[in-house]
Design a protein around this nucleic acid. Structure first.
Lengths: 108, 108
DNA sequence: GCAAATGTTCGATGACCGTCGTACAATGAG
DNA sequence: CTCATTGTACGACGGTCATCGAACATTTGC
């Protein structure tokens, strides 16, 4: 009880003008995370569970956190699930064309 | 003398259709390497030494190797120097718009 | 031939990455 | 209340990253 957090700390989401290119590119440089953002490209909100990823739960948490903390996705709490969506407007504003270019690339 | 390499192995350059998106994005996710490709964006060939990078020689070699092996740059031997250039046509062909998007991003 | 210039290679090092499993927390259903 | 669902937190782990310094290689110029 040395750090008596009153409630769960809200997930960190960098502001639009705080997005950093190296961090965003690093977030996009992993195949699992590329698959996540490809699935989010339609614009819909998706729970973590709705993705069929080749890793266990805790690893999913890790990948979604990397995407969120770099500013690529947004996470919103809804009951017991976490709804994920692409921060397309913020990305387009700060790094014009980048997201579309990545989403348009061949998967393999 | 267990592996009698007859001559220096030629630097590895992946073919255009071998370029992989995660590797390219990873290569571009480092500030030093972003600086290198920004300097190469003009299209000219530059020796490694002509870049004013905040790291020592051997680290430069490392960064140029990451860029070359991911297919972002080309290295050509010319006397005692190594001339570096962007593989813009290959990148544009395989990942349309990606390089321009990255080069157009704010540095910080 | 010798020395300078330009890079590479190699080993070391500390930090970070991606993965897992277990335990935990919060919400919703019965 | 109890339990299932959904996700986070934490610790461990092997591997990779970015960095350095020292030694080496290759070409050019004197």
């Amino acid at each position: 009880m040395l750090t008596p957090e009153v409630a769960a700390p809200p997930p960190l989401h960098p502001q639009r003008d705080e997005l950093e290119l190296p961090a965003v590119l690093h977030a996009l440089s992993d195949p699992v995370r590329l698959r996540i953002i490809a699935d989010l490209a339609s614009g819909e909100e998706r729970s973590c569970k709705s993705f069929d990823l080749p890793v266990v739960k805790s690893t999913c948490t890790y990948h979604f956190r990397v995407l969120r903390e770099s500013g690529v996705i947004r996470q919103r709490l809804e009951g017991t699930t976490r709804l994920n969506s692409l921060r397309r407007e913020d990305l387009d504003a700060r790094f014009p064309g980048l997201l579309d270019a990545v989403l348009g690339c061949p998967v393999s």
